[in-house]
Amino acid sequence: MANAIVKRRRQELVVGGVVLAGLALLPVPIKDVYTQNLIIITVLFAGLAQAWNILGGYCGQISLGHALYFGIGSYVSTLLYLKLGIPPTLGLFAAGIVAGAAALLIGWPCFRLSGHYYAIATVVVGEIGYLLFLNWDFVGGATGVFIPFKGESWAELQFKTAKLPYHFVVLAFAAATWLAAFWLEGSRWGFAWRAVKDDVVAARSLGVNIFASKMAAAALSGGFTGMGGALYAQYVGYIDPDSVLAGHFSILIALPAVLGGVGTLWGPLIGAAVLIPASELSRSYLGGSGRGVDLMLYGGLIVLVALARPQGLVSLFNWRRKSDVPAA
């Protein structure tokens, strides 16, 4: 039986490699900058949603405040770059560490709450973070921070004319989150999280430290989200609280995973591939008035999926579930 699991995991790695190669080549023949941008943002959100999935999917702790980690990450790498000259390739990791630490700090009081109360607390904490940055002059307050162009550089993740390098950068990020989720699925943490998600009492009776499990998931999830924020800041070249810390951003990070299938390896990617293009298209067709419409679109999609495919879009690809079907 153990062999079947090993085999399935090997298959998944192979599929992961194929998908990675496909995604790497995807924008190469495309000359249209708008489409390239759309692909980059989609891949970035696939990575962010996978990061969210570690806490919200595998561990079952629904966070609606991940914009805070995203924002913290984007500010940390940007400020390290502008004020201390530390290249974003290093700042990226500082962003991950600070965002992960923030997730621990928030988890400390909030994980004492359970179920919906935890989700509500994350909304409130996210809003507090947004307001703090909005009124904090050192980080540019409401005006935000502009990242000046200093010439093409991989170390500083600055590319003037071409978008392709950014594509490879965010793809590496998305691949890292996928690999992390893949590895965690088979690790003792993955087991502990699924136990915590399903039944806290049973998990505790098996010697699982509930609080520590949630904290570990939060730190990893927040850390990866912060790294995504750092990459995003470097890509768009300008950040302010409204663009990286706003509440709707938290929803946007969580939704692809929810749509695609929470607690699954492929759900976040599939969800992002559907959701992000849909939201971008609705925005470009409807202009400034589209912001409300794309939210309605998300809502509609979620309702549709919840009704027709409660396990998420990933359940359309049945091959993965075959081994779980009872033999009898």
Binding site: R194, D198, D199, V201, A202, L206, G207
Partner: peptide
Amino acid sequence: PEGRRLFPRLSVEDNLRLGAYA
């Protein structure tokens, strides 16, 4: 525990493996 409290969506094997978690 009362009511068994298994992990319903996990396989029998994974339930047992979780038992060895401690």
